[in-house]
């Protein structure tokens, strides 16, 4: 389970953020709520990224695991940042 959490963590945070935003937009549209959701998600992505960068890379398997984790959180970070933009453009 731990390996899967390392591999998928960044993208899981993305999923929480995206579906949270969709639920806010669908059921309770509010810019404030999107901020309240986005800030912890960004923090989580950043922490996961730091964690991933510090993972072991002593064997082929752990090296591979680390780079997938770093990439996943990096991509998640970019995607969460992008998703944070729309509320500021919809007047």
């Amino acid at each position: 389970m731990k390996t899967w959490a390392i591999l998928l963590g960044g993208l899981l945070v993305w999923a929480v953020h995206f579906f949270g935003l969709y639920a806010i937009a669908e059921f309770a549209p509010s810019r404030m709520l999107t901020v309240i959701l986005t800030v912890p998600c960004l923090a989580a992505e950043a922490l996961l990224l730091i964690y991933a960068l510090r993972l072991d890379r002593d064997e082929a398997f752990t090296r591979w695991r680390r780079s997938v984790a770093v990439g996943g959180t990096g991509l998640g970070l970019v995607a969460v940042l992008w998703q944070a933009l729309p509320p500021w453009f919809s007047g």
Partner: peptide, 22 residues
């Protein structure tokens, strides 16, 4: 892609808000 898409996304979002009829 990250650089180009960020710029495009901002343009698109701004224009969407601007054009959407209220």
């Amino acid at each position: 892609p990250v650089v180009v898409l960020t710029a495009l996304l901002v343009w698109g979002l701004w224009l969407t808000g601007d054009l959407a009829a209220k």
